[in-house]
Amino acid sequence: MGALVEVKNLINRFGTQTVHEDLCLTLDDKEILGLVGGSGSGKSVLLRSILGLNTPKSGEILIDGVNIQALSVKELLEVQKKWGVVFQNGALFSGLTVLDNVALPMREYTDLSPGMIEELALYKLQMVGLEPSAADKFPSSLSGGMARRVSLARALALDPKILFLDEPTAGLDPIAAAAFDNLILSLREALGLSVLVITHDLDTLVTICDRVAMLVDKHIVMGTIGDMMASEHPWIHEYFNGPRMRAISKNPHKETA
């Protein structure tokens, strides 16, 4: 069994500015991979390329062994059902209630009865730790943490194999962020998910990620946290040996990676 997501020799260029040069990345089965990099280093462009929202200059993107660029709309849909995406601010549909947001993919792509879809949507909401009373709210009245959870429930609606998270803990308080991290971990255990998580949160990186993919100088450097901390590259060295990282490493109970 190969990698679930494989990016081969990706090149992205906007005008004269090269964002990615011969970039390669792999996400293995049941792995949580943290994608990090400085602001503006092209993490979001990379995610958008993997999701097919951005057409790269050249390179291949294989999802579960299938090159998504060569697919018809119908074939692409089958691939799209294999992944769930949680966007940075949730990207919930503001005109739909929380329940309808989660139910939408199921209504669209399954033949389930309306009653069952509603029950399943409620159940997914409970799975991500939301009260049923939140089901009838509209996204504009949710807190950031709740919106993120609803978005996660929507991403999980069709039981995907791969989960993409774009800065899931940004803007959350430490307790909510830690709870979200734990949720991701237990989801991986329960559902056998593979997770690609873009994050600036060093806690998330240390707590849940099996490996780290660092976007630096238009390339990806992959390895465990230990590898990264030992890296000679000045930028990586600074990232993983900065004051914030040292503060985290001092707390041995968090050292699970």
């Binding site: 159940y123 799975m127 009260e131 049923p132 089901a135 009838d136 237990s186 255990e189 329960a190 559902l191």
Partner: peptide
């Protein structure tokens, strides 16, 4: 076990307005 343990114990009823 992982999967079943993760499922919420019982479905909490939603009070419909």
């Amino acid at each position: 076990k992982n999967l079943f343990d993760f499922l919420p114990g019982k479905m909490e009823a939603r009070t419909a307005p």
